[in-house]
Amino acid sequence: MNSSDHSPKPYWNPYLSGFGLGLVLLSAFVIMGRGLGASGAFTSVTATVMHAIAPAHATNNALYANYLGDGTQSPLLDWLVFEVLGVLVGGFLSAALANRLKFAVEKGPRISSGSRLIFAFVGGVIMMIGALFALGCTSGQALTGGALLNAGSWVFMMCVFGGGYAAAYFFRKLWL
C-alpha cells in the first residue's frame, strides 16, 4: 500500500524538544494561569468509575468526594482530564508522523516481557501513590512548579532524582 520509506525517524534533539515543551508550558501559564499535569486526571477518572460502581463507597471516601464535587457536574469535565486526552492524541500524532507507532513491550535486554509488565504495573502503583502524596507528578510538580520557583516542587524534584538514583542500583537488572 505504500512506497516510501516508513522506518522510524530519529528523535529530536533533547534541548530543542525541551524548548518546545517549555513553550507549551508557558502558553498554559499565559492562557490558563496554571501549569501542565497528568496524575490528577487519573484520580478524577478513578473517582468517576468508583462512583458508578459503588456510589456510597465513593461519596464516603474523603479523596473521591473531593474529586466528585457536589455532583452537579461530572468530574470528567475537568481541565486535567481533557489535557491528558490531548496528551494521548498528541503523542499518537507525533509517533504516527515519525513512524514510531509500534505494538511492543519496551524493556531492558536481560528481562522477559512478562516480568517487565509486572514491574511496569508495580511501578505505576508506587508512582501514583507518590504523586498523590506530593500533589502532583513530574509534570504537575517538577515541571510546572519548577518553572514557578515553587518551594515544594523543588524539594519534590530533588527527592525524585534522589529516590531514583538510590533505587537504580537495586533494579539494574531491569534496564542494563
Binding site: V125, S139, G164
Partner: peptide
C-alpha cells in the same frame, strides 16, 4: 511522595505523563 515517585520511576520506567504517550503509541 518525591522519593516514592523516584522509586516508581526506576521500577516502572515511566512517569504519569510519559506513560500516556507510551500507551497511545501502542
Amino acid at each position: 511522595g518525591g522519593l516514592l515517585l523516584g522509586i516508581g520511576f526506576v521500577i516502572g520506567g515511566y512517569c504519569p505523563g510519559t506513560s500516556c504517550v507510551s500507551a497511545a503509541t501502542g
